[in-house]
Amino acid sequence: MKSFKSFLIFILCFITTLSLSGCKSNNSTSKGQPLTKTEVIIGTACTISLYDNKDPKILDEAFTRLKELEDILSINKLGTELDKVNEMAGKAPVEVSDDTFLVVSQGLKYSKLSDGALDITIGPLVKLWGIGTDAAKLPTEEEIAEKKSLINYKDLVLDENNKSIFLKKENMIIDLGAIAKGYAADEVASLLTKNNVKSAIIDLGGNIFAVGSKIDGSNWKIGVQDPEDARGSSIGYIEVTNKSIVTSGIYERFFESNGKKYHHILNPKTGYPYESEILGVSILTDKSIDGDSLSTTLFALGIDKGLEFINAQPGAEAIFVSKDHKLYLTEGLKNNFHLTSSKYEIIK
């Protein structure tokens, strides 16, 4: 089994003093250097780097918020709100916090928009395959058929008045893996802004939120990792200010069985990982929760349908990277993406 961080990395251009290694651990507050903290939360390495308001209390507050969200949204910890919703599947609605209700509502929205290409009730299949865990396995046809029968976002009922969530069938499972990190990034970005932070980078396992601009007022430069090369080798970069960048790709998490690789992006209709011409797709949005939802949706839809879908979403842009080294960009990125690799070709 092999595990990767997100296919997207951030490369904060060579004219800044922040390096990728520096993002892991850095308590320096010297001029030009960020104040950085990293902890493993929500199942991934979370790094926050402050460039202007270097108050350690702000970092502590941000990580406290991340831990709060993990304690209510995770299905990998016992006793979380989401865990309780899943336990009561087919039995009774469960009243939840505003955070949980909002994230599940957003997940249901994109499940509907994508006609089930993204389905947040995919939990039974995710648990069955176990990709990204020590329990990863190739399930039998019978096991897959059984779990597929439990997946249907139309059997998820939200009650706005009571802030409750109900799954109609026993053994259904909501999995927010395609959306929770995005919400967490938005919450941290909001917290930093309220604390007058105007220059920061949030990296939640590859979900990047570039808060404000660089300390000199120029744009952040966000690199797109070459998925077939060593980490740090980029295809090119985009320039952003106060934006979220999220990626889904087949090199994020996978395992091998009988010489075949199986990645973690599962098709709720077939029960197997999506077969696609895409190596990865990166989404640029104002809100990370939108980018998180859209990245999985677009990967599932493929390039042609994915481009059609993303072009209908206001304020969202995308870069598709195909297995034959072609790059497909939405209109809003064609003048912003800077190709630096001779191996790839932009398709107009």
Rank of each mutant, 00 (worst) to 15 (best):
P124C: 01
V224E: 08
A117D: 14
L339I: 05
L301Q: 06
S218Y: 01
G315F: 02
K198P: 05
S149G: 04
D98R: 08
I72D: 07
P56N: 03
P273F: 11
I174R: 00
R65I: 15
A45D: 15
G177D: 05
G90S: 04
W129D: 12
D98K: 11
L12C: 14
S25G: 04
F309W: 05
F320S: 13
Y51C: 13
S30I: 14
P139A: 09
A210V: 06
T285H: 13
S257A: 07
E81S: 03
K323G: 04
Y51W: 13
V321W: 01
T16Y: 04
K137A: 04
D292P: 03
L113T: 06
G206T: 14
G205Y: 05
D83G: 07
L78F: 10
D290P: 13
T247G: 11
E170Q: 07
D203H: 02
S293R: 03
S282K: 13
E228R: 06
T133V: 07
I41Y: 01
T64H: 15
V157L: 08
K84A: 01
T247C: 13
L125C: 10
L307M: 14
T296F: 00
T241F: 15
V211K: 11
I202G: 06
G232L: 08
L18C: 03
S341W: 11
H325T: 05
K168C: 01
G212K: 02
Q106P: 08
G206E: 15
E308W: 07
A200C: 06
E331D: 07
D71Q: 03
A117F: 15
K221L: 01
S341D: 13
F7G: 11
I222G: 13
S6Q: 10
K198V: 08
D324G: 03
K181Y: 01
H325G: 01
S105F: 05
T47K: 02
H325A: 02
K163R: 06
S6Y: 03
M172H: 00
E187F: 11
K326T: 13
E239N: 14
I347R: 09
